[in-house]
Design a protein around this nucleic acid. Structure first.
Length: 406
DNA sequence: TTAACGCGGCCGTCGATGAG
DNA sequence: CTCATCGACGGCCGCGTTAA
């Protein structure tokens, strides 16, 4: 007959011949006290080796049957009876702790499931605690299982302080269900995280687009400003119209524009629409051999109003010293009887001034009537300028006379 | 800060002229 | 003769500068 014993000192269990148990001769397979501490030889040969304290958990005629029976069943380890004689401090603790039985033959197999079982047991214990299902400390402390690979439970006696298999399986199912939910939540979390990343990417892209649009808008505005400055305030169609009237080759126009664009850094690149205005050595050719300083020409171009434009252009072409001693047509004033006629301005240069004003007006309007009406004032404007210059000269003379008198 | 002053632009007037 | 146009001229007004 064989006994399935648990050695108290190291909690190792295995089957031994009953002859290894000192003072033990069982009459049947139930003739043993599972709460008693026996003295057992650990070696297979009786009367050899040291004696160890052990607990008998089961008896069987055949060793294999015994082991199979133990492997397939989950056997509760009963609390050892408190024997004043045997109750040493060494043994007292064994009944109080939750013991993990290590079957010598099944040790490798158990190791494969050890992690899983440990985690399951831990979760079960936590669930028990959470659900208030834990029993008294006395009961739970005594509960231990010898688990087989099939997780078979043979707790026939409902009065035994064990966790019923039903409860265990329910907890296990609950645990598995929660694990499933956890997996589901983790998947959900991962999906949300991916969506967040995508949203962040889209947001970044949107920000880039917004700044790009802003930049383009700014560039467009600046381009419009430059174009308006170059073309004056007239529409682009005027450029074509005037250009067609000049009968000049187009490549030259482009060259002129290119040259003009590089002319002045201070004044905006006010480019004459006429290709006849060519730039050479810092001077602009207005036509018929009349050259003016390019910078001054740009200044004249940006002046507002026909009157100022004409007056400034006249000063630029003739100069104040010439103008103050001339009249527009050479006709003496009739206001004074003895008026001496002043030499007239060159009709040729006058026509150039008139042409320049025409080009300028033509950028504003296509109405020939309006153009003609505005052009008719050229002589008037020049005359006024001559008068203004003379006025200034007279004022200066008066001042000088005043100072000389003082 | 403010008044005085100078300068330049604009407008009105005058006289001459030429076309109808 | 009348009227529209042109040149010359003077005056007004706004703006900028300067001195008190």
């Amino acid at each position: 007959m064989y006994a399935f014993v648990r050695f108290l000192e190291d909690n190792v269990c295995y089957a031994l011949p009953v002859s290894c148990v000192q003072d033990f001769s069982p009459q049947s397979q139930v003739d043993f006290d599972n709460q008693r501490v026996y003295t057992v030889y650990r070696n297979l040969e009786p009367d050899q080796g040291a004696l160890h304290k052990a607990q008998i958990l089961a008896l069987a005629e055949d060793k294999t049957d015994l082991e199979n029976s133990v492997i397939q069943k989950k056997i509760k380890i009963p609390k050892l009876s408190v024997n004043p004689l045997e109750d040493t401090g060494e043994f007292k603790d064994y009944g109080e702790e939750e013991m993990e039985l290590r079957h010598s033959k099944r040790q490798d197999g158990r190791k494969q499931h050890e992690g899983t079982h440990k985690s399951i047991e831990a979760v079960v214990a936590r669930l028990e605690k959470q659900n208030g299902m834990s029993r008294s400390s006395n009961c739970s402390s005594e509960e231990a299982f010898i688990e087989t690979s099939e997780n078979t439970n043979i707790s026939d006696n409902v009065n035994d302080p064990v966790v019923p298999r039903v409860v265990y399986e329910e907890l296990l199912r609950s645990y598995q269900q929660q694990q499933e939910e956890m997996r589901h939540i983790q998947q959900e979390l991962e999906r949300t995280r991916r969506q967040l990343v995508q949203q962040a990417k889209k947001l970044k892209e949107y920000g880039t687009l917004v700044s790009e649009v802003k930049e383009l808008r700014d560039l467009n505005r600046r381009l419009q400003d430059v174009l308006l400055l170059r073309l004056g305030s007239g529409p682009a169609i005027e450029l074509e119209k005037v250009k067609s009237e000049t009968h000049e080759p187009e490549p030259e126009l482009r060259n002129t524009f290119k040259e003009e664009a590089n002319t002045s850094s201070y004044y905006p690149a006010v480019i004459p629409v006429m290709d006849k205005y060519t730039l050479e050595n810092g001077k602009v050719h207005l036509g018929s051999g009349i050259w003016v300083d390019a910078e001054k020409w740009h200044q004249v171009q940006v002046t507002q109003g026909d009157s100022k434009f004409t007056k400034n252009l006249a000063v630029m072409i003739w100069g104040t010293d010439v103008l103050k001693n001339r009249s527009v047509t050479g006709v003496a004033t009739k206001k004074k009887k003895d008026a001496v006629p002043k030499p007239p301005l060159s009709p040729h240069k006058l026509s150039i001034v008139r042409e320049c004003l025409y080009d300028r007006i033509a950028q504003d309007t296509v109405d020939e009537t309006e153009i003609a009406q505005r052009l008719s004032k050229v002589n008037k404007y020049i005359c006024e300028k001559i008068m203004d210059i003379n006025k200034s000269c007279k004022n200066e003379e008066r001042r000088e006379a005043k100072y000389s008198m003082q």
